[in-house]
Amino acid sequence: MKKFFSRRANHEQLEDRELVALAKADAEAFGELYARYVKKMYSYIYHRTGNIQDAEDLTAKVFIRAYSHIGDYVDRGLPFQAWLYRIAHNLVANWHRDQSRRKIIALDDYVARSLHSEAPERLAEESEERDQLLQAVRRLPEERQQLLLLKFIEQMSNAQIGEIMGRTEGAIKSLYHRTLLALRDDMPSSAAADQQRLEGTEV
């Protein structure tokens, strides 16, 4: 069995920073980093691209690029995953530039997988609303999409998001507010529902 495959028990206990230092000369350490982050990278890229094939292709590129540059990695106090997310973000940005001529929106399989077994009418309605929302998210500028994915999918704090996006915590809060404003304006049905909720609470 290849060394890369075998996760050493002591590697699993190491922090990212220690693993990165080891990974410059130790394939097993890089294997552990891969095991820790492959799902996160895939999930992030999948939501940014909207299709499985490109998500797999770009996830592979993230790790190949990470491995080829890990020797140059300098620990500046930021988490290792911030570095990986930046690689992923850059690759996705390039992918969007390449794809700008042909539009791929294949969120159906994702939506279908995450549906619950409820009444068909409600299910269809929820699916439609979710689809609309996901499409609205994908119409947002790249950095706003990134913010929402890191916040809602990765459940990161503003400080962590700031580290990845190279911004202050306050700037992330402000960007989040502006992103919600933009989404609300793009989603009239959501705005109407919120208005109803608001009126209900005020009475």
């Binding site: 492959v38 799902k39 996160k40 895939y42 999930s43 999948y46 939501h47 499985i52 998500a55 797999e56 996830t59 994702y110 997988r113 995450s114 609303e129 979710r130 929302l133 996901l134 998210v137 929402l148 994915l149 809602f152 999918i153 990765e154 989404l183 959501s190």
Partner: peptide, 12 residues
């Protein structure tokens, strides 16, 4: 709505 729509997706 964002909370329920944006969920982690597992790779194959």
């Amino acid at each position: 709505a964002l909370q329920s729509a944006l969920r982690p997706v597992e790779p194959r």
